[in-house]
Structures are given as structure tokens and as C-alpha cells.
């Protein structure tokens, strides 16, 4: 880029700035400040979305859509929370919608119990771990969108019930119920229960 002496602030010169500052600038139309936020948060958010969706390609799409939605909504964002918390919520909700679209809700509550994993004896630990992850992913697919999202946020992201309730937009009680059902389903699926 030519002539970055003083007048413009190319991405690099904003790279060290904190989120709050960049968020205000982006809200006022500074797209380069927004670009810094995108690069800073993209990795963690794709990680989150991959855990929620179980698929990195869909995860990247969801995160991309979430950022674009965030850009559109930034002028109304008044810093009630940090940018990180805000975009985390947008991504989670985007993923919830993807999960909901994946299977009709009706079919989920009556989803059959998955079969217990077959590999009771594994030749070595790596294979075993890999197989276990595969089983777990399969078992996760048997959960409803809300069960899956609540469980991932609780178990894999270590969020509090309160924060999950805020993010997903349901009561804490409802979050607890969904996490419980998810655990029930998964312990059964892992063939570990009884």
C-alpha cells in the first residue's frame, strides 16, 4: 500500500489495539479496524463453531456469516458486553440455526438410542481414542440442536449455565434440562451406562 505515513491507519498499525477501541472505530465505519477484529477472533470462533457443528467447512461458513451480521449490527452495538462475548453469541446462534435446519425438531425428541460402540477391545490407544472420538461425534448427531449446543458450550467450552442461558436465549433451568438430556444420551451411547 502506498503512502501509509500518517494519514491512514493500515491494518498493521491497528493490530496492537485493544478490542474496545477497534469496536468503536468499526462501529463508526472504519472497516480496517473491523478487519483486525475478524483476524483476531476468527480462529477461536471457527473452533467453537466446529465443536458445535462437528464440521469445519460449515463452521467457517457460519463464522463468516456471523462476522458479516456483526458488521451490519455494529452501529447499534453499544458495548453492553465485550466484542468477544458479543460475536461468540452471534456465532453460537448462527450455529444453532444451522443445527435446527439440519434435522426437523420433531424427529429429534424421539431419536432412537444409538447402538453401543462395537470396539470393546482396541489394539492400541491411539486407535481407541480415534474410534472414541468417532463414536462421540456420531452420538452427538443424535442430539437436538438445543441439547447439542447447550452441552458443547457447557462441557467443551466450560461456560456457566447463566452465560449459556443468555447466549441461547432460554432459561437456566431449560439449559440444565438440555445438558442433562445430552449427558444421558451420550453416556448411554458410549456404552458406559449400565
Amino acid at each position: 500500500m502506498a503512502g501509509d505515513r500518517t494519514s491512514t491507519a493500515p491494518p498493521d498499525t491497528q493490530a496492537g489495539l485493544d478490542d474496545a477501541l477497534l469496536t468503536v472505530r468499526a462501529a463508526e465505519g472504519d472497516e480496517e479496524a473491523f478487519a483486525v477484529l475478524v483476524r483476531r477472533h476468527a480462529g477461536a470462533l471457527v473452533g467453537l463453531a466446529t465443536r458445535l457443528l462437528g464440521n469445519q467447512v460449515e463452521a467457517e461458513d457460519a463464522v463468516q456469516d456471523a462476522f458479516i451480521s456483526a458488521w451490519r449490527r455494529l452501529p447499534e452495538f453499544r458495548g453492553q458486553s465485550s466484542f468477544g462475548t458479543w460475536i461468540y453469541r452471534i456465532v453460537t446462534n448462527r450455529c444453532l440455526n444451522v443445527l435446527r435446519a439440519r434435522k426437523p425438531q420433531a424427529a429429534l425428541d424421539t431419536a432412537p438410542e444409538p447402538a453401543a460402540p462395537e470396539h470393546t477391545v482396541a489394539p492400541d490407544r491411539i486407535t481407541e481414542a480415534r474410534a472414541a472420538v468417532g463414536d462421540m461425534r456420531q452420538a452427538l448427531d443424535g442430539l437436538s440442536a438445543e441439547q447439542r449446543a447447550c452441552w458443547v458450550l457447557r462441557e467443551l467450552d466450560g461456560q456457566s449455565y447463566e452465560s449459556i442461558a443468555d447466549t441461547v436465549g432460554i432459561s437456566q433451568q431449560a439449559v440444565r434440562a438440555r445438558v442433562f438430556r445430552a449427558r444421558r444420551h451420550l453416556t448411554n451411547a458410549m456404552g458406559a451406562w449400565r
Binding site: G47, Q56, V133
Partner: peptide, 20 residues
């Protein structure tokens, strides 16, 4: 499920630049 969790790391092979 610990193997499913990567904390706040991006998945392998993810390029933040391309998404940005």
C-alpha cells in the same frame, strides 16, 4: 470428550487470513 475439545485454538489447517 476431552479429545473433542481444543480450548480456544483454531482447528488444524484453518487459515484466518482467508476467512478474513
Amino acid at each position: 470428550v476431552r479429545d473433542l475439545s481444543h480450548g480456544t485454538e483454531a482447528p488444524d489447517g484453518f487459515a484466518a487470513g482467508a476467512l478474513a
